[in-house]
Design a protein around this nucleic acid. Structure first.
Ligand SMILES: [Mn+2]
Ligand SMILES: [Mn+2]
Ligand SMILES: [Zn+2]
Ligand SMILES: [Zn+2]
Lengths: 140, 140
DNA sequence: TTTCATATTTGAACCCTTTACAAATTAATT
DNA sequence: AATTAATTTGTAAAGGGTTCAAATATGAAA
């Protein structure tokens, strides 16, 4: 926990209990959690936790470049530790979101039609291998 | 309008006034409008129009494959006439959404890591050429 | 330690998009 | 015309997210 403490301090963020637990959670949880998922978990340890604090903290972390926001449809915002740009796959059956490690040169494009690109999002939706297995839906 | 009438009938959709106006609007408006934008416009012609009808109709059109839903962040759903898969650019300054005609072989991928891909989404965000011009922000 | 100023957290109210649902309207059948 | 089915409408409600002021914790100064 000392490491997380310093990690925040180095970035000019007061390392409060709430922020440390949240940071620890998203560091250990690579499932691209929603605010609600984070809240459900951490409120077990901090019963007085407010959901507003999660929203505040996530916005702060995004500003500081610690985590990145993710939009894969469904109108829910998801979060993950900031990594190299990568694509995602969302299963419409189980709802899980997987990292996709395709070597996508698309992430290197910085300008298109004169427009300056700041961020690139690539995601797929469909049925994941597990759900295909369970349902015997492997056709091709 | 006769053409739109037949267009709906051929697909087993009763061509009501509301549906015809909505279809006409998204056919002429290639700006990827939101439900609210569609509502604001068409309620001028049909003052009794309900926003629920827009939601119903857009869901129906999506089911029937007439239009496609679009998610380019910001948690707003947008719609456009169903076209060949293409990428989008959303300007964070003016909010406009542009089609991006890159020849992306990524749309041809049907399977990744054993997951079956049903849909692929690619979008960029940043500052569009117009906004760069207005602000004298053209650096590179 | 005590005091005071600042930062953070909390919880309630609120906004916005979308869905649910039942009543009202319209269209189609008999 | 009468009955039935489809569509539209309007209200309520769900869900995610923000705003804001009061409560609490933090940290520096005295
Ligand atoms: Mn990821
Ligand atoms: Mn488009
Ligand atoms: Zn799955
Ligand atoms: Zn712009």
């Amino acid at each position: 926990m000392k490491k997380l403490y310093e990690f925040l301090e180095e970035r000019g963020i007061s390392p409060t209990i709430q922020r440390l637990k949240i940071l620890k959670y998203i560091e250990e949880n690579l499932k691209h959690p929603t605010v609600d998922m984070i809240y459900q978990e951490i409120s077990k340890e901090i019963p007085t936790l407010s959901k507003t604090t999660i929203y505040n903290t996530m916005n702060l972390f995004v500003e500081k470049g610690i985590v990145s926001e993710l939009c894969v449809g469904e109108g829910e915002v998801r979060y993950e530790i900031n990594l190299a740009p990568h694509a995602h796959f969302r299963c419409t059956e189980c709802g899980n979101i997987f990292d996709v490690e395709l070597d996508l040169k698309i992430f290197k494009i910085k300008k298109v039609d004169g427009n300056q690109i700041m961020h690139t999002s690539v995601y797929f939706t469909g049925k994941c291998s597990e759900c295909l297995k369970k349902k015997g839906m492997i056709n091709e």
